[in-house]
Write a protein that binds this DNA or RNA. Structure first.
Lengths: 239, 239
DNA sequence: CCATGTTCTTTGCTTTTTGCATCTATGTCA
DNA sequence: TGACATAGATGCAAAAAGCAAAGAACATGG
């Protein structure tokens, strides 16, 4: 039993309780636009309202907050083993009517195809600029996640997690362009991918796209599934 | 009274308690090396051991976690109004013998001169690579803070907070070089500062350095006291 | 079975940015 | 007043990024 090992806290210094929760901004690209996942809340406050997938930390189940976020993702979105990074903590007495609370917010990026099943079961997708009606400070959280992802997109491998492997370089480029909001020079893009060195070719080429030269297929090198590859010079606009 | 307004939580879904604390990595430059501040813990566990300044969140006093971090800085290090940014959350059941805990970790950068009084009153300074004997996971926290600051140094105004204004460009350059761990080309550095555009000249020049041309004095523009100025291309090595 | 269209990929420049050496400016001090 | 030291500017060389256009590889239709 865990409690038996715990050290007692003198009652006079025992702090007032703080609600400790986790919220996940699950991002994906749908029709070339960044979307985040919402689920209907199953309890008050805001029962039935669409909100970020989240919940209380369960000290018995969760070894740490990352495990908690992964559990939430698994239970509410059917997602396992995604790229997951800590965003920020949102805290204070004003954000939750139940009292002083802490939300440990996480961002995760997945290809749209990995959400198909969950979307059939009630998971919702909303554009990251469509923030109306969100409870608590979830609008702030989504904004922060979107800003973080967009700013990291210009100098890292982050956007690759929105692509279902194997994928082609033109496909990946269009993902980068969606996040950056502007076209990218093709040659510069390929030079940058070579420099970042997080892709490896997959044998066999794709041809389904029709009457033209087939493209090489690529996938993420395994050592970059959690760690990002970064460069000190970003990608700029193009043609 | 705050409690009166709070919404009740049904007992069956009330989560187990989580200890909610704040820890601050207070960084400064001493003799050209990055140091962090430690204070002797005033309670068990680890009473008397040198640790990061920190403490429990006080829901009555602190409006949010940032306010809590500022309070800790004020009470334990005599620092007010510094540049302060959230680092990360360190959490889990293993990091604190009292139970499942969350530490919201913050980084702050101050000029050495602003710590003189607190150092006289028992605040300690240790090199960021000297992590022996720290309690909890404070070594991990300091490492994360040091990594964050070093990596942001190459493309942002962050290091300026280690300089007591007014300062000269050569002084600021040597601060950047200390953080980057390598010399920086003088012309590139000045071009980058001009591009980042976070400095404004102070009338009057310094001459105390002796038998040579005096240098222009500068200070941080007020709008960059909390927000950083960033560029998409970093500073590289130089002569 | 070859010409045509389409997109992927590479190549050869032009333009921009960065790095380096040097030159000038402006003070102190003997 | 001239030697010295560091601040700051300037001009050129090297490197990187951007752009246009050529070449490659396929499907399709005459």
């Amino acid at each position: 039993m865990q409690k038996a090992k715990n050290m007692a806290i003198a009652p006079e210094i025992l702090p007032d309780p703080v609600l400790c929760t986790v919220d996940v901004v699950l991002l994906t690209l749908h029709l070339g636009e960044l979307h985040f996942a919402v689920v209907a809340r199953d309890a008050d406050p805001f029962r039935g309202v669409q909100a970020l997938p989240g919940g209380f930390v369960h000290p018995q189940e969760d070894a740490d907050a990352r495990e908690c976020a992964l559990r939430v993702l698994r239970e509410k979105a059917g997602v396992s083993g995604p790229y997951l990074e800590q965003l920020s903590v949102f805290s204070g007495r004003a954000r939750d009517p139940r009292g002083w609370s802490v939300s440990i917010a996480w961002v995760t990026l997945v290809p749209e195809s990995s959400l198909e099943e969950a979307v059939g079961k009630g998971l919702g997708l909303r554009k990251v600029h469509d923030l109306g009606g969100l409870p608590f400070d979830h609008a702030d959280i989504v904004r922060a996640a979107s800003d973080r992802v967009r700013s990291k997109s210009s100098y890292s491998s982050l956007p690759v997690h929105l692509c279902q492997p194997p994928f082609t370089l033109p496909e990946l480029q269009s993902v980068y362009e969606s996040l950056l909001g502007e076209p990218v020079n093709k040659v510069s893009f390929r030079r940058k991918m070579a420099e970042l060195d997080f892709l490896e070719p997959v044998e066999g080429e794709m041809q389904r796209s029709g009457a033209h030269r087939p493209a090489q297929l690529w996938r993420l090198k395994t050592r970059f599934r959690q760690a990002l590859s970064m460069t000190d010079r970003g990608i700029n606009s193009g043609t």
